[in-house]
């Protein structure tokens, strides 16, 4: 096995860590006072983290010459989708549970739910077109499509900030990192580079 394959396997397991840890705590270990809230909150937080890590790949590559990072980008992006799907599923099947009909009013009436749901929907085409075959098929259209990830990250951070009661501290950390990541891209996106 090549070194890259070993590294990929390790990164894969590392990224699975939060999922295993959460699952262990909730179903086997100490679930804590409000396990449903914890599942929903932590899967959401890991979605944001993976979105930001994925968006950080290109700047890091360019600044530090870590070109090998791009080999991990697809996996990191798919992990963002994985945690987003867990987040949505935990909200739908655990938090709402028997009250699932509430989702209709939630999506219609509550902007932060609508925003989060939109972000998750937008992740689906990106996940589907993440394979080598799809990259080939889409050709030049692949990159513009995958620039949706910027919008998805913005929606994700907005979704988090919107539901907070009074303390915006945590969402602001994500917003700041996202802002920086978008800022360093600006010259390229605006065509000045």
């Amino acid at each position: 096995m090549s070194r890259l394959a070993v590294a990929k396997a390790l990164v894969f397991l590392l990224c699975l860590g939060p999922f295993v840890h959460l699952g262990y705590d909730v179903f086997l270990g100490d679930p804590g006072p409000d396990p449903v809230a914890r599942l929903v909150h932590e899967t959401g937080a890991w979605t944001l983290r993976f979105l930001l890590i994925t968006l950080a790949v290109t700047p890091l590559r360019r600044w530090f010459g870590w070109h090998v990072l791009v080999r991990f980008r697809r996996m990191l992006g798919l992990y963002a989708f994985f945690y987003a799907t867990l987040h949505f599923a935990a909200y739908l099947f655990l938090d709402l549970g028997a009250f699932w009909a509430q989702i209709l009013t939630d999506i219609a009436k509550r902007p932060y739910i609508t925003v989060g749901f939109t972000a998750w929907l937008l992740l689906i085409p990106l996940a589907i077109t993440s394979t080598n075959a799809m990259m080939k098929r889409l050709g030049k259209r692949w990159q513009p499509l995958h620039r949706l990830s910027y919008l998805i990250a913005i929606l994700g951070v907005l979704h988090f900030a919107w539901l907070v009661k009074a303390d915006l501290g945590e969402p602001l950390v994500y917003a700041t990192i996202l802002g920086l990541l978008l800022l360093v891209r600006w010259p390229r996106l605006s065509g000045r580079n």
């Binding site: 679930p31 409000d34 396990p35 655990l94 709402l96 549970g97 009250f99 509430q102 902007p111």
Partner: peptide, 26 residues
């Protein structure tokens, strides 16, 4: 009467032995 950002129709009960699949009650 819902909170503007979330429903008040139901709640998650924090108590011993509450399954994660049945935490929400009216």
């Amino acid at each position: 009467v819902d909170h503007p950002r979330w429903s008040q129709a139901s709640e998650r009960r924090i108590a011993e032995g509450v399954s994660v699949f049945k935490a929400r009650i009216a």
